[in-house]
Amino acid sequence: MAEITINAKKYQVNSGITILEACNRLGISIPTLCHDDRLEPYAACRLCVVEVKGKKNLQTSCSTKIRDGMVVETHNKRVINARKEVLDLLFSNHPEDCLTCEKAGGCKLQDYCYEYGVEEGTYVGEKKDYHIDDSNPFYTYDPNKCILCGKCVRVCDELQCTNAIGLGNRGFDSKVVTPFDLGLATSNCVSCGNCVAVCPVGALTPKKKEKYRTWEIRKVKTTCSYCGVGCQIELLVKGDKVVGVEPARGTPNDGLLCVKGRFGYSFINHSDRLKAPLIKRNGEFEEATWEEAYDLIIDKISEIKEEYGSESFAGLTSARCTNEENYLFQKMFRALIGTNNVDHCARL
């Protein structure tokens, strides 16, 4: 344990953690654009700077470890001015289309500019003017909105380990690029969208089938319905439709997803969905009510059971249904129909 003083109050915190981690635990909010606790500290956005007594320059809280006796100021004038300057510089080189930007409401640059009262980018001069990369079917990359926090590149490298993107050029001309800046479609990108998930601004945004604003949606945490990893996801719901998916933190995927889990949701509200029971009459399906359907099934069960016995029944339960459903299915076959002829495609 270490004793530190933050904003004139004394705290006991675990030694070995960073000032940012300590502040997060203590409920002191510190802005940051480039930090992600799953990634190595990067210290590039400089928004999380704090004043540490005895240090000449401001220190980034994301990359400065707590020491016993440390005295930290997180919101004094000097710190706030530095943050304002960073936001002003970023905003001065950023499009001013917040009204129509897909990220509005969920944009950290917007949030922090609001919090720190940076109403406009006051520096006039050169601005980014890049081509928008629209070549991936699931997401769009607009380099003009990129603030070069490097999260996308680092997630692709450190966590996803695909290394489809990197930083190209340098200085003011730095840009997130695929090899030779040929665009996402030509790269080894696997469309996992893990870069999109960490982008704090509107540079990487999912392509939407349904338009929605962040404040219009509800998030429902659930488990992905594809492979057996069981990734935790959040369904984005607008009205009665699932309009998107975001990865959830925690085990087992900790904020990562693959292309299917992240972007393969549009089957849910697809027009091909079965919406009523269908009974085949003379080789053609006809819509029926549930009661008609149930009656027909029950009739057939008793009819066939009577004539051929329980062993003439077979049921395929499902590796895609819930535990509860599988349980009921086998219970129905075993206890009510009277056969163990229950299996599913575990072997396929």
């Binding site: 970023l90 001069g125 200085g171």
Partner: peptide, 13 residues
């Protein structure tokens, strides 16, 4: 190098 904001954006301004 373009990594941090003050140097990348600030020196340019």
């Amino acid at each position: 190098c373009g990594k941090c904001v003050p140097c990348r954006e600030g020196t340019k301004r």
